[in-house]
């Protein structure tokens, strides 16, 4: 760790401001090349404290960098995580205002909803499946408060794992009898298939990502609570979204979830 408490507070305030104004900031890793992942999580926790002070509530977590190619690209050998706040959940069937976002991308995920707490360390896939009330088809809209997505691991972790919005589908399916590894996902943008994938793209099994999360946050005294929603990581590559685009993900056995992006600001002719 190399950042002072003052650095952490200043960078957290900058990131929060960047998100509220949809105005990105320079990479933290450019300005603080010595900052490490522990520093980045300190910044993320400070942003979390700011949001809770604003009246928001932590409703769960997301896991990121769950694909091996992404880990290689970021020079890490494990995933990262962020916090999901109540204000991030966007209702299906309502266009998502793009003006509030900077450079959004969409990822289809299998959301886990817990009905029992998960306390690390040593949480297994079996523990996760036993603690899962149901799964939902979900879309994560990721965004970066760093200019042009010029992110390294420190930037994305500090920026709450580049999370922005979550859209949940309406069908709850018990996990019993499902194999999350082989569950297929088809992602369409404006009706055209743009990506397909399967649950196994997420650390071999999305439940493994939840187990990793529970085990990892135990290291700092955290745990997953009954009722928490976990976004375990994407089944496909992230897809860029433009104003006016619609996106839909169909999940084997689970149904579908979709969202439209509003057309954006009116422009003078």
């Amino acid at each position: 760790m190399s950042l002072t408490e003052e650095d952490v507070r200043r960078l957290a305030a900058e990131l929060r401001e960047a998100e509220l104004r949809a105005a990105p900031i320079r990479p933290i890793s450019d300005r603080h090349p010595d900052a490490d992942i522990a520093d980045a999580y300190r910044i993320q926790l400070e942003v979390t404290r700011l949001r809770v002070a604003e009246g928001d509530a932590v409703r769960g977590h997301k896991v990121g960098l769950t694909a091996r190619v992404m880990q290689q690209q970021f020079g890490v050998d494990q995933p990262d995580f962020g916090h999901l706040f109540g204000s991030m959940f966007h209702p299906e069937g309502t266009p998502l205002p793009v003006d509030a976002l900077i450079a959004p991308r969409v990822e289809p995920e299998l959301a886990f909803v817990l009905d029992r707490p998960l306390q690390g360390p040593g949480v297994t896939v079996a523990d996760v499946l036993a603690a899962t009330a149901f799964v939902l088809p979900a879309l994560e809209i990721i965004d970066s408060r760093i200019t042009d997505w010029r992110i390294g691991i420190v930037d994305t972790v500090a920026d709450n794992a580049s999370s922005a919005r979550v859209v949940l589908g309406g069908t709850r399916t018990p996990i019993a009898g499902l194999d999350p590894r082989l569950m297929g996902v088809v992602l369409r943008r404006n009706g055209e298939i743009v990506e397909t994938g399967a649950g196994g793209a997420v650390l071999g099994n999305p439940a493994q990502a939840v187990a990793w999360l529970a085990t990892t946050i135990a290291g700092s005294g955290g745990s997953l609570r009954a009722g928490d929603l976990i976004m375990p990581g994407t089944c496909t590559r992230a897809v860029d979204m433009q104003p006016g685009d619609t996106v839909r993900a169909d999940f084997e056995h689970l149904g579908h979830v979709g969202v439209a992006f509003s057309a954006g600001r009116e422009r003078a002719a």
């Binding site: 091996r68 297929g184 996902v185 994938g197 649950g199 169909d250 999940f251």
Partner: peptide, 22 residues
Amino acid sequence: LALAGCVLEVDGRVVESAAGAA
């Protein structure tokens, strides 16, 4: 079959995934 998930492993590591609709 359009939604059937497919996982491709090389030496036990998942390297690609897809669904039938690909």
